[in-house]
């Protein structure tokens, strides 16, 4: 793992963008790394994009603000357009292939579209699209183990939604399988 990962997660409100980011920060904390998460709030969220920044690091985190992300996870086209030029060299752009049909290309950046809505629909619940993306993200970055992620998602769902753990974990598995089938390596 690279020592510090700066991650930008963006999409429409309701696509699970904030949860995606928080799962990473909670996982970092669980694994005794340093995690930092902050949401865009206020007027910048109007007009359809919600975004959050996450930093996962094995050392004390300095600036909470970064110019370029190492990884961009974009759940819709406006988010991709907004942040695609703010990704580091050798970085990663993961985007929602169900909503973004064009082939995305940036120099020296690995760009992969994952049809997360379609995969989630096949599983029977489009709301787990974010966890399909999580599976793809983890397969590429190898940031956290399945065990860590499962513990965090369990915590997120709480007792009230405990029955949704299964479909969330299946979504992660499908996301991972999608990347494996592509045969792409990143980490």
């Amino acid at each position: 793992m690279k020592k510090t990962s700066n991650v930008k997660v963006a999409g429409f409100g309701g696509q699970g963008v904030m949860m995606f980011g928080q799962v990473l920060a909670y996982s970092a904390t669980k694994d005794e790394l340093f995690g930092l998460w902050f949401p865009s709030y206020g007027p910048e969220t109007r007009g359809g994009t919600a975004n959050c920044s996450v930093i996962v690091s094995d050392k004390q985190i300095n600036s909470p603000v970064f110019k370029n992300a190492d990884h961009l996870v974009a759940f819709n086209l406006p988010s991709l357009e907004k942040f695609r030029t703010k990704v580091e060299k050798d970085g990663l752009i993961l985007y929602n292939g169900s909503l973004i049909k064009d082939d995305v290309k940036e120099d020296n950046i690995l760009c992969i579209g994952v049809p997360v809505n379609d995969i989630a629909n096949d599983l029977g619940n489009v709301r787990v699209a974010n966890m399909v993306m999580m599976g793809a993200y983890l397969e590429l970055t190898k940031l956290f183990s399945d065990e860590t992620i499962e513990a965090i998602i369990k915590k997120f769902l709480g007792e009230r939604k405990a029955d949704l753990l299964d479909i969330n974990m299946k979504a992660i598995e499908k996301g991972k399988a999608f990347i494996k089938d592509l045969g792409v390596n990143y980490a």
Binding site: A25, T29, F34, L36, F38, Y41
Partner: peptide, 9 residues
């Protein structure tokens, strides 16, 4: 506001 709104370990 950033310290108020962000999350950290």
């Amino acid at each position: 506001g950033l310290i108020g709104q962000m999350m950290e370990s």
